[in-house]
Design a protein around this nucleic acid. Structure first.
Lengths: 245, 245
DNA sequence: TTTGGATATTATGTATACATTACGCAGCAA
DNA sequence: TTGCTGCGTAATGTATACATAATATCCAAA
């Protein structure tokens, strides 16, 4: 696939790169981003099953690029390919979300620690601090949707400074996997005052170059936020079976 | 690709699944495992560039499955695909290894913490303890190659119990990426007494179900071992340029 | 001799053709 | 009615054909 930037600057382009720039794109990439976008936004509902041929017709392409896109989506866990049964949009189970958050948080904590080690430039710090200002305003105003968007930008903006492209790439993959769950609980979320406080603490530790504090604070933040998210999802998602290892 | 097990029980099958069982495999998977094996073991040297057509001829397949395999290898970072210039086996730079180890260790630490939370069955504990016994014997005997193999088995065996298939999958990907560097320093390694000690401590903490201790101990272990590995690789690998973010 | 431009070559990206194989259904028997 | 066997169908996996686009070379001119 194209050597695309791992974690793009704003949420819209993380969701669908083509929506920002109207550059010419290879068919395979178009297929990939198109399908991913439709899945993440629910335009292709979980459980939907399509054959390669049907997908190709849907996107006005031949099977080859569609197939390659489907393989990539399957590797990312967004669809499952069952030979001769078509390509099915995966439904997230509670267990899936727990698994995803486990990986995602481990990576994000490491990324934040790296940023702390590396240190923040003035402009970087100001940008992040500005986001926090606006998030606190949104909290006051009770605008949870706006807050959530900026929360996403804050996390993405922070980790994007870690200087490890591979880490960013993998993080981006898991971001896609948890996106639908995140959207699902958006209207259910209580006031994010506690998150606002923790974000300030994290930014302070990172800004001070205190790697160990940043790691501990972010770990606490994620543990709390992830537990809350899972709690909100309980009984709103199928549980998912335990696997036998 | 096939729904293969993320982190296989022994090193040989992690390196090349087909070497163990002689099951019939799809052409795409054959191509993938074949190429990956050749790259990891150096049979395809870094810098080697081949065209899709040449790879297809090499493996007696058509371009389609070879191409899909190459795309997957590129996503894993083992090769780079430059349009019209062929598929090049990537050379690891010091920077690459540092990036890889950063991600790998973050994931492994999380996995070990999960195992501690979950607890060890008697048989699992005994298996891992048995490995440590034999590793210590190898240390005494100065058989570093044998020690290294079992070290790998110990780490893989430990994380395979974490109960998170996604984590294992991603871990396996990064394992492949760092494999060549690991082999490179094998003959240079000093006596791994310190690792032996730390392994015992980690296993004890995990066995006791002490998640926090396990996390801390494993973090310390990886930090030390990774730093040592990087030190041994300095001046033996090209540095790699800093990226501008 | 060097530079610029045009053309030819060729590798990839995409489309399509073909072969294989697994699944479901029908029909028969218990 | 239920279960088993065999065959037909159709979706995938693989091969190949074709179009596109980029590079390199060659020739000419300065």
């Amino acid at each position: 696939m194209k050597p695309e930037r791992a974690f793009r600057p704003n949420r819209a382009s993380r969701l669908h790169p083509t929506l920002s720039g109207v550059e010419r794109m290879a068919a395979r990439d178009r297929a990939y981003h198109d399908l991913r976008y439709r899945i993440l936004t629910g335009r292709l509902a979980p459980g939907t099953t399509l054959l390669e041929t049907e997908l190709a017709a849907l996107l006005s392409l031949s099977r080859t690029p569609v197939r390659e896109a489907a393989i990539k989506l399957a590797e990312e866990g967004l669809v499952s390919i069952r030979a001769r049964h078509g390509i099915t949009v995966r439904e997230l189970t509670l267990r899936d979300v727990a698994e995803i958050l486990d990986v995602f948080s481990a990576l994000e904590i490491r990324a934040v620690a790296l940023v702390a080690r590396r240190g923040l430039a003035r402009a970087e710090h100001d940008h992040l601090a500005g986001l926090l200002d606006r998030m606190e305003q949104s909290t006051e105003a009770g605008d949870i949707a706006r807050w959530s968007d900026m929360d996403d930008d804050f996390h993405a903006g922070m980790v994007s400074l870690c200087g490890n492209p591979r880490l960013l790439r993998t993080l981006g993959e898991y971001w896609g996997q948890q996106y639908r769950a995140r959207m699902l609980i958006l209207p259910l979320r209580p006031s994010p005052r506690q998150s606002d406080i923790e974000h300030r603490e994290i930014l302070a530790a990172v800004g001070a170059g205190n790697e160990d504090a940043a790691r501990r604070l972010h770990q606490r933040h994620r543990a709390r936020a992830d537990a809350q998210q899972l709690a909100l999802l309980t009984n709103r998602l199928p549980p998912g079976e335990a696997d036998e290892t």
